[in-house]
């Protein structure tokens, strides 16, 4: 039954063009990250060549190749920003629609006129959402591998594993926002309010919370390379306790460690950054199940 519900949801998303749009958007931003990486790569090479010429003319020793200073996968640093920005927004819409369409067009009423368990219905919805977002993430993975191959060389086995780990983590992050979209609608019932509330959560987690916990302005939250912000105020001594739960920050920090583009740290510390995201997803998925169990599908969701 889970498969039936999931297939029905996938079909609905395909008919609404939501599934192809999601894949194209996620893949498109991976292409953009690749292009930016390619452009910056060529510039660094060019600047290095010019600097070698400059110091050679002066009779000095040539500086070391900057690519020895730059981690291989750092070319994809922008991708983690795009996941937290556009990816999370798209995931909210996917999660929102997974619940909204059945409640609005009467399919929910029809479905529950049959002996279908709410648990199967919930897992079916989650499976369909996971498949759509998974397809987008898989396309992004392939695009990233292609970008690395074009710019430098085919990634090593280790890099491929790191990249796969990063995109698996990104998929989990997107699933979290998909369930946020679903829970917001189930709690508030009104579609418009549900969607806006979910977008509000995204804005809070992506921009407002990092400001409170780390003093990062919105524009700083968008930059993969950020200069440290002085956070010695009393406020930050208090709010820094919340930083482990600032999941957008933790996502970027953990993604940086998975891609080996950030300062290394013990694996346990990275797992501690990932844990809140896993726990949040598990709790919200359970809440989705609970809310679906109690949801009255005989009523349409008002606008």
């Amino acid at each position: 039954m889970i498969g039936v519900i999931a297939r029905q949801q996938l079909l609905a998303c395909r008919r609404q063009n939501l599934a192809p749009v999601t894949v194209v958007v996620l893949g498109g931003f991976a292409v953009l990250a690749g292009i930016l990486g390619w452009a910056s790569h060529h510039t660094i090479i060019g600047i290095y060549d010019e600097s070698v010429k400059l110091v050679t003319d002066r009779g000095q020793t040539a500086p070391p190749n900057p690519f020895l200073l730059k981690p291989t996968l750092s070319m994809l640093s922008n991708e983690m920003i795009y996941i937290t920005v556009i990816g999370a927004l798209v995931a909210i819409v996917v999660g929102h629609l997974a619940i909204a369409s059945d409640a609005t067009n009467g399919i929910g009423r029809l479905v529950f006129s049959r002996p279908i368990r709410r648990r199967d219905y919930t897992f079916g919805k989650l499976a369909a959402t996971g498949t759509i977002l998974g397809a987008g993430v898989a396309v992004s993975y392939l695009v990233s591998v292609a970008a690395l191959t074009v710019v430098d060389r085919f990634p090593t086995g280790g890099d491929l594993v790191r990249l796969a780990g990063f995109y698996l983590f990104a998929w989990l992050y997107l699933m979290l926002f998909a369930v946020i979209g679903a829970v917001a609608l189930l709690l508030l019932r009104r579609r418009s309010l549900g969607l806006l509330a979910a977008i509000g959560v995204w804005l809070t987690l992506t921009f407002a919370l990092p400001q409170f916990t780390s003093g990062l302005r919105p524009s700083q939250s968008l930059n993969p390379i950020v200069d440290p912000v002085p956070i010695n105020q009393t406020l930050f001594r208090i709010t820094s306790h919340v930083r482990p739960y600032s999941i957008a920050e933790q996502f970027k920090e953990a993604a940086g460690r998975i891609l080996a583009t950030a300062t290394p740290e013990p694996a346990a510390d990275t797992w501690l950054r990932i844990a809140p995201i896993v726990v949040a997803f598990a709790l919200l998925a359970a809440l989705t199940w609970n809310l679906i169990t109690r949801h009255d599908y005989s009523r349409s969701n008002p606008e």
């Binding site: 660094i44 600097s51 400059l54 110091v55 730059k70």
Partner: peptide, 22 residues
Amino acid sequence: QIGDTLDADNQIPGGLFKALGM
């Protein structure tokens, strides 16, 4: 953000030109 991202000096933590001793 592209402006910042494509800024050559921003490509290396600490600054590319500093890393090259320029």
